[in-house]
Simulated assay, not measured.
Amino acid sequence: MKRTHLPLNGMRVFDAAARHLSFTRAADELAVTPAAVGQQIRALEDTLGVVLFRRTTRGLELTPEAEAGLGALRGGFLQFEEAVRAMQAGQSSKSLTIAAPRDLTEKWLMPRLAAIAAADPDLRFVLIAADELVDFTEANLDLAIRWGEGPGEHQGEALESDGMVTVAAANASGEAAIAWPGAPAAEGGTALVRVADAGLAIDAAASGLGRATVPHLLAAHDLETGRIVQIGDAVPSQLGYWLVAPLPQWRQQKVRALVEMLGR
């Protein structure tokens, strides 16, 4: 019989009925009716072509055919349990692999991971720089952070943000724009410098090279410390940072815990 055709549910019912020698008590264990147990046993007998139980004046008895296979069946169930425990072992792992844009990692992610690790010293993080969403299977990722309008093909949760802000050094003069890929079009002014990402745009602004319009999430720490100042109000943006993962990773307990901590 092919593995895909194994009557596993019927075998589970058979195991319970064989332990109790009672369809009623097996039904109680499995949270079904005695009639459902009897139906499963009859279907299993039809599939296997053997009789598994006989009713006698003393009650239910196993046939020799049933006894011959019962030990191997129970050994198989124990191996199934071991396999499940092995597959679930990663749930208790303290190692998490995260992919995120370089500037977000430097400006926002690493300080938060440091605070999370301080509360749980056993945690270990592997950080991968990725401006584009990478292959979760190939990179063995647990979680990724992406910039966009949504989680795309994965499960996801948005990081709260005030949108885009324009920043400059406190003593900066002039309105030269600092350009970076993905920056909103400047309203007037000339780009004095072009940089690779929003994090470098913030650093360029702090150095007095002009004004940069960047995600508030990235600029928040430098604004709080006075390294840069905000010019005007924040502007809502359709784009934002998203915590994303395929559904199997998203369901993992350690990933859900990390998402909750990062989203605070």
Rank of each mutant, 00 (worst) to 15 (best):
100 A>Y: 08
85 R>Q: 15
171 N>R: 14
196 A>E: 11
29 E>H: 09
88 Q>C: 10
210 G>H: 01
66 A>D: 01
173 S>W: 09
212 A>D: 01
224 E>M: 10
83 A>P: 03
52 L>G: 03
86 A>F: 10
44 L>H: 07
84 V>K: 06
168 A>P: 04
81 E>A: 12
66 A>P: 02
207 S>C: 00
153 E>N: 09
217 L>W: 00
8 L>I: 15
173 S>L: 12
161 S>P: 06
98 I>E: 04
189 G>W: 02
108 W>A: 07
173 S>M: 11
194 R>T: 15
192 L>Y: 08
163 G>Q: 09
255 V>K: 00
213 T>N: 05
239 L>F: 15
183 A>H: 07
52 L>S: 00
140 N>Y: 08
176 A>V: 06
216 H>F: 14
254 K>V: 03
209 L>Y: 12
188 G>W: 04
151 P>H: 10
33 T>V: 11
132 E>H: 12
23 F>M: 13
150 G>M: 14
167 V>L: 11
146 R>E: 13
231 I>P: 02
149 E>W: 11
129 A>G: 08
71 G>Y: 14
209 L>N: 05
75 G>H: 09
140 N>R: 10
47 T>G: 03
52 L>P: 02
121 P>R: 09
243 L>D: 01
227 R>A: 09
235 V>L: 06
3 R>A: 11
110 M>A: 15
